[in-house]
Simulated assay, not measured.
Amino acid sequence: MQVTIKDVAKKAGVSPSTVSRVISNHPRISPKTSAKVKQIMEEMGYHPNLAAKSLVSKKSNTLGVILHRPAEELFLNLFFSEFIRGIVTQATRSGYDLLMTSGATEKDEMEAMTRFIKGGRVDGIILLSSRNGDGMVNYLRSQQFPFVLIGRSNEHDDILSVDNDNVQAAYDVTKYLISLGHTRIGFVSGPPQLVVSQDRMEGYKQALQEFGLPLRSHWIVEGEFLQESGYRAMSMIMGLSDRPTALIVTDDLVAYGVLKGITELGFHVPDDISLFSFNNISISELTTPPLSSVDIGIYQLGYTASQTLLRDIQENHREQNRIIIPHRLMIRQSCARVD
Results as ranks from 00 to 15, higher is better:
74 L>V: 10
46 Y>K: 14
105 T>L: 13
210 E>R: 12
298 I>R: 00
221 V>I: 15
179 S>N: 03
210 E>S: 12
262 I>F: 06
272 D>R: 01
338 V>N: 07
219 W>N: 10
143 Q>K: 13
189 S>F: 02
274 S>T: 05
101 T>F: 05
118 K>D: 14
286 L>Q: 07
283 I>V: 08
220 I>E: 09
271 D>I: 08
49 N>S: 12
228 E>A: 11
16 P>M: 01
206 Q>A: 14
260 K>H: 09
107 K>P: 06
138 N>Y: 09
225 F>V: 04
289 P>F: 03
89 T>W: 06
95 G>D: 05
53 K>V: 06
64 G>L: 07
5 I>D: 09
55 L>F: 15
125 I>Q: 07
77 N>E: 07
165 D>M: 04
61 N>Y: 15
265 L>S: 12
203 G>W: 04
216 R>H: 14
215 L>H: 13
124 G>S: 07
257 G>W: 04
270 P>H: 02
255 A>M: 03
106 E>A: 06
27 P>Q: 08
180 L>M: 15
275 L>P: 03
203 G>N: 03
229 S>W: 02
159 I>L: 12
161 S>Q: 13
14 V>L: 08
291 L>E: 04
53 K>P: 03
218 H>G: 05
101 T>N: 05
103 G>A: 04
66 I>Q: 03
304 T>E: 09
333 Q>D: 15
101 T>P: 00
294 V>E: 01
132 N>W: 11
168 Q>D: 10
128 L>W: 03
6 K>I: 09
287 T>C: 00
193 Q>L: 09
19 V>R: 01
215 L>Q: 14
284 S>L: 01
